[in-house]
Design a protein around this nucleic acid. Sequence first.
DNA 1: TTGAGATGTTATTATAAAAATTACATGTTG
DNA 2: CAACATGTAATTTTTATAATAACATCTCAA
Lengths: 143, 143
Amino acid sequence: MKYSTKLSDALHILVFLSLGTNQRPTSARIAKSVKTHPAYIRQLMAVLKNAGIISNTQGQANATLTREPCEITVFDVYRAVEGNKPLLHWDVDTNPECGVGIYIQLTIADFYQEIQETAEKKMRSITLQAIIEKYYSKLTRLD
Amino acid sequence: MKYSTKLSDALHILVFLSLGTNQRPTSARIAKSVKTHPAYIRQLMAVLKNAGIISNTQGQANATLTREPCEITVFDVYRAVEGNKPLLHWDVDTNPECGVGIYIQLTIADFYQEIQETAEKKMRSITLQAIIEKYYSKLTRLD
DNA sequence: TTGAGATGTTATTATAAAAATTACATGTTG
DNA sequence: CAACATGTAATTTTTATAATAACATCTCAA
């Protein structure tokens, strides 16, 4: 399949909103920046709105963050756009007849869960604020 | 796309080899346990062999681990089968005309790298030995 | 009140990464 | 030599995702 870039694109949207250019944040303008289709942006924004991360009104291009960038974490956005989809996938379809098969995968699932929690903890520690700051520093000095 | 289960399947193979049943570990037998195609198992085993995790001889079904299960980590297997593929993917194809576009994604890439390293550190801490032990404990008591 | 322009939402199509499968060369052993 | 195994490349199928289309609904200003 294609790789999911939903998290990246959703973060892109949030940074775009934070920058607050003098132009209204229409789905068309954001789509141009992300280089994608406006409808896809609207879909992501609907999800972000549903998760309470942004607010919006139909008919108007007035999307804004519902809270400060320092209070929005990468994990909030990940959960919003990816739901419960994990980073690693165990093999659901093994042979149930073979005792080894299913129990190995269930064991692997346990360890994947540990890896997931570790990654999620890290995601919780990264705020939109941090992303914006690093973005600005990239703009000024080229590091 | 489909989700990759290469890591899970490769770990499955390694546990299968560790268990050391009285039957030879042919790709056909392992495939039956994983419920997949023998050629796919051979492909994964070729990768594991190439990474120095197992040894094998063509024509014989004599695959074995090259080192103790406590010296093989989940990360070793991840690197072997997934190469440099990361857990999270930033959006490579943004608008270069829009300063926001590419620099946001480069910034996101930096933070993804941090998340990646955190997850990899965790993966390094999980050994095949630990998986085998947990597997056995699942077999005996049902937890 | 009407029209331009915006979001909201569903459905369909295209893309791409992965597993499944095929085919066959090559190696091993009895 | 025959049966059976791995090694490997090529092709096909599957499937999660992005792209796109279509249209309802909302907002605002002329």
